[in-house]
Amino acid sequence: MNVGGWASPSNLLGFALYYMLVPSVFVFAAGASYRIVRMLATARFPPAQRRPWSWIEAIKGIIWVFLRPIVFVGKTRTDDLIVGLILLHVVGVIPVLFLLAQHMSWWVYYFPPYKYLWIFAVPLSITSSVLTVTATVVPTTTMSHVFVDTIWGPLTAILNGDLLAIFVMVAIGYKCALRLVELITKHSHTPRRLGDFIAYALLFGIIFSGYVAARHRPSPDVATYMNVLGLHVLLAEILLMYIPFSKYWHFVFGYWYGKLHEWYDTDLKRGEAL
């Protein structure tokens, strides 16, 4: 399969990096613009008899706007807090995407100022090995099994690509299983949406292919590595294109808009009658 060198479309990595990147960014940008422009076109600012507000109250308000649902879900659905929020987001997708050393070098390549975050890089593995050669972390000893030296110190036991990827896969598995059980028992507090399964499948594919590529599996030859890594990048590009049309939009816009609107609506517009 691997003929024609790095930039050839005949290996998946070449195809993903040199042929699909620009179109996928274009589709993402077009989709995102479409959604934002539609909202801007229908934006209204209805008047209200507002209350005066202070900056202190407003700052407290915005903190609570973000915290309230987290506290609520922690009290009412602890499993969802652990799986959905912690495993999938906090010690899952977010650090993997933004702090994993390999991904950081990718971000820096396209956005050089990102290099200032290098200090927070998360290694691929808890132990140093050939798999972390692209990471900026320096092994501290010459033992055969050297541990990685990062700013995270002992937290590296959790904050490493291996474990974070496993967290995400476990979380996706749990979410899908829960949803399937609910659908089978017809006792579902959320509606059936095909998009959810597509979104989970895509994310699982990305994480799994990344995990496999990092291990140079299924076989250690270069051609397989390039194809598995290529699949990883290609799936990520598909996800990028899918973002504006799926629930992943929350990550780019929906979540931030929603929380800021809620803050404006509840704290700035209605204020607190003190």
């Binding site: 229908t42 649902p69 509606p191 629930k247 939009w249 808009y257």
Partner: peptide, 22 residues
Amino acid sequence: NVDAVMMHYLENCLNCGGCAPA
């Protein structure tokens, strides 16, 4: 009558079910 805010309500639900117990 669907304006920007209603569009957000209609399009950005994550289907997480977090609102159910409320």
